[in-house]
């Protein structure tokens, strides 16, 4: 297993040079905390301001030696990777290999599962989100998530669904500002034209694909830095799937996007970077086997297991 890790490292290095922000990875420790605290403050103010600010929000994620557990079961073993801002990173791999678990560790959702435990560091914009002084609620505001099946809040209207995140944590936003955010978010999710005349209707009345785009609008309305998508198209038909994939391409201008998918075509179509998760045999922890540009993963992967998986020859 030494070789793939090495390659991932190599890839990290090469992409770092390309990164326009050129923010050197800061893992030094305590002195980082202050600067991060201010950046979080900036975030909380952002939704009240104009849309120009959005483009600067996307953040790089650095994961060092991340281990995930369910009780005593070791689900994911020592992941090291860097997720680039303004790129779509796809995570592929067979069921049960830990990619969803890994995704959920990026916004501290994993620890909500009874027995869920995390070991290691996930550094977003210089701040380890697992540091003891970090509030998971604040992390989840910065890192939005779209789920496998569309989950608009059933008792809320379309409008209320979009603003749901904005009204949390006792925030006050004026109604005109909310209207503007609703329109912007729904336009951003390519849903505005379909729902603008029925914003007061329940979100559950939309079709599956519309509901999923509503969930994307809801997640982006709070202007997160990162958008996680856990098989966002698995419950959708091909047309709705394409609509979401187009949307992902537009969204990467503003966000760092990580998407888990079982759909090889989707990974190859929609992502810039692909990570392949695998486990040696059932019962052993899942690992990040290979991480590279999507083109390389699908045309010339370094690892035999990756090649077998992407070409449909398993095990």
């Amino acid at each position: 297993m030494a070789e793939p890790t090495e390659r991932s490292q190599e890839y990290m290095d090469s992409t770092e040079k390309l990164d326009r922000g050129a923010t050197a990875p800061t893992k030094e420790g305590p002195d980082v905390t202050d600067s991060v605290a201010t950046s979080v403050d900036v975030q909380t103010v952002l939704p009240h301001e104009g849309r120009e600010s959005v483009a600067t929000v996307a953040k790089r994620i650095e994961i060092t030696d991340l281990n995930l557990y369910y009780g005593s079961f070791h689900a994911v073993k020592s992941v090291n990777m860097t997720i680039q801002p303004n790129k779509v990173t796809a995570l592929i791999g067979s069921s049960g290999c830990g990619k969803s678990t890994f995704l959920r560790s990026l916004n501290r959702m994993h620890e909500l599962v009874p027995g869920g435990r995390v070991d290691g560091a996930v550094i977003i914009d210089g701040q380890d989100i697992y540091a003891s002084n970090v509030d998971p609620v604040a992390v989840r505001r910065q890192v939005g998530m779209v789920f496998q099946s569309p989950n608009p809040f059933p008792t809320m209207s379309i409008y209320e669904n979009v603003v749901a995140g904005l009204l949390l944590n006792s925030r006050k936003t004026k109604k005109p500002a909310l209207d503007e955010i609703v329109e912007r978010s729904l336009r951003g999710a390519n849903l505005w034209n379909e729902v603008k005349d029925r914003l007061d209707r329940p979100g559950g009345g939309l079709s599956g694909g519309q509901q999923q785009r509503l969930c994307i609008a809801r997640a982006t309305a709070v202007e997160p830095e990162v958008l996680l998508m856990d098989e966002p198209c698995s419950a959708l038909d091909p047309v709705a799937t394409l609509a979401i994939e187009d949307l992902i391409q537009q969204l990467k201008a503003n966000y760092t996007i990580v998407i888990v998918t079982h759909n090889m075509q989707q990974a190859s179509r929609a992502s810039d970077v692909t990570g392949f998760f695998n486990l040696e045999q059932s019962g052993t922890p899942g690992q990040l086997v290979e991480l590279d540009t999507t083109e390389t993963i699908f045309s010339n992967p370094a690892n035999k297991a990756t090649e077998d998986y992407v070409t449909g020859r398993f095990g």
Binding site: N107, M109, L112, V137, A138, R140, R141, G144, M145, F147, Q148, S149, N151, F153, P154, T155, M156, A164, G165, L168, N169, C215, R218, A219, V222
Partner: peptide
């Protein structure tokens, strides 16, 4: 999925309850 949807938006536990469990 509704509980997690609320939490993933950055809801506190009480906010999650108010948005999903109580309705």
């Amino acid at each position: 999925i509704h509980r997690e949807g609320a939490l993933a938006l950055g809801a506190t536990r009480w906010e999650m309850i108010r948005m999903t469990v109580l309705p």
